[in-house]
Design a protein around this nucleic acid. Structure first.
Lengths: 234, 234
DNA sequence: CCGCGAAATGTCGCAGGCAAAGAATGGAGC
DNA sequence: GCTCCATTCTTTGCCTGCGACATTTCGCGG
């Protein structure tokens, strides 16, 4: 009925999305120095839209800017990772609780359907989804179900940073086969509509992931951005 | 003796600070349309640094941008206000709890001293501080005491939006003389170092303010930005 | 009264110049 | 001969002005 009207998108938007994607997938390593001209050349845009993107990412926390000096990808240290989990542990369960109380039946059914669909993908596939992706997607839809735009914004940003952690090569440790098994807790939570229990399950899940990531960080401290010296771009 | 190193500040920074100040004090009314040239002329800067500031404020949620159409100050509706309080209620108490557990004795003493100093100001003075300012300042120092930079960032943004609500003329309703009396709860909380109790007190405080603001909004719906948000489908 | 097209308003993006920070170089002192 | 410091030079972020495109508005014709 409605032709997608080709949502014209500004260049600063594509620069932002692309740069953000490069960062949260760690193709641009944490701590790496960034220069305007180099990035502009790589992205095929001028400095103006690029600066726009850099500004947004700085305010988002993915880039650190030192005025008149330069930009660099926000370092990812054990400390910052821990900070992130602390905040996630505070907000995450409450998002779930609120979502479970406020979501309509349709929204809940949609979340359940989305979860099942994603879960059906075969592990090992190119587009295979990790357990964290699965849970995050469900959490995201529930956050939207709260109807609280502010909360959604905060949570989205949180999930973005979370993706960056996952993009490190810790995934093999983080992934837990048992978590993706049939009787996944998310399935139960989405079925029974018990806000308190759902929040508790979410908290437990977050704590588990936190512990696993902590152990992984201890095992591979090399992936952290300990040295941020002059690394020539490209 | 101590030469102030004159921290060179970029134009986009002054544009950002000034524009943000104009917004959170509601000198720029919620929902008001903004044009680049007008603002650039008012602030005495060119369009480039202004756009930088606008971008940051948009990402911060204080400005809504529609690509290729224009900017406007983020509307302030009863709904958005409620959203804000919901998030504050989630984060605030945990910030206090974490601050009370992690803060050093010196930090706690500093927070207490700052609170007493601010509280000593005579009501009615030009620089008189409202109860909310008082509490927010204390909360802010405690947030920093957590050592969690991420949490501090989130909380700072929250406090900014809170200022905007207070800047509406609801203050006379929001202010409660009893709250600023001698035995203020913050004083007790800062003295005894009981994280759980502190968090509980904070939660209670937030709920009280929430209720008062709600009542004020009901009494004066006129200050809300109801007339401008035509094209704002949620 | 309604649809259509052209002017006006305003945003988006580019190229270039300016100034500051850091790197490189040359010279003086030990 | 080595080290340290001052100066020069290059890199790089910051900003101004202008031109191009999109959106809205207004006027004309039907």
């Amino acid at each position: 009925m409605s032709e997608v009207p080709e949502p014209r998108v500004s260049l600063n938007e594509v620069a932002y999305r692309r740069l953000r994607s490069e960062i949260i997938t760690c193709r641009l390593a944490p701590g790496q120095r960034l220069t305007e001209k180099q990035l502009a050349a790589d992205l095929g845009v001028s400095t103006a839209p690029l600066r726009d993107a850099l500004t947004r990412l700085d305010h988002e926390g993915l880039i650190h800017t030192v005025p008149f000096k330069g930009y660099r990808v926000a370092p990812l240290t054990p400390r910052s990772i821990d900070d992130l989990f602390v905040v996630w542990r505070i907000i995450g369960p409450e998002v779930i609780r609120l979502g479970m109380t406020r979501a309509s039946d349709d929204q809940l059914a949609a979340a359940r359907a989305a979860f099942d669909e994603m879960g059906d993908r075969v592990p090992g596939d190119a587009g295979a989804v990790h357990d964290i992706d699965l849970v995050n997607a469900t959490f995201g839809t529930l956050a939207e179900a709260t109807g609280n735009d502010y909360l959604v914004t905060v949570y989205r940003r949180l999930m973005g940073d979370m993706s960056r952690i996952r993009a490190l090569r810790l995934t093999s440790e983080v992934d837990d086969p048992s978590a993706t098994s049939e009787g996944h807790w998310v399935r139960h939570v989405l079925a029974e509509r018990d806000p308190d229990r759902a929040a508790e399950q979410a908290r437990r899940h977050i704590d588990e992931v936190h512990q696993r990531v902590l152990q992984a960080v201890v095992r591979w401290p090399s992936v952290m951005s300990s040295e941020v010296s002059v690394s020539q771009p490209r």
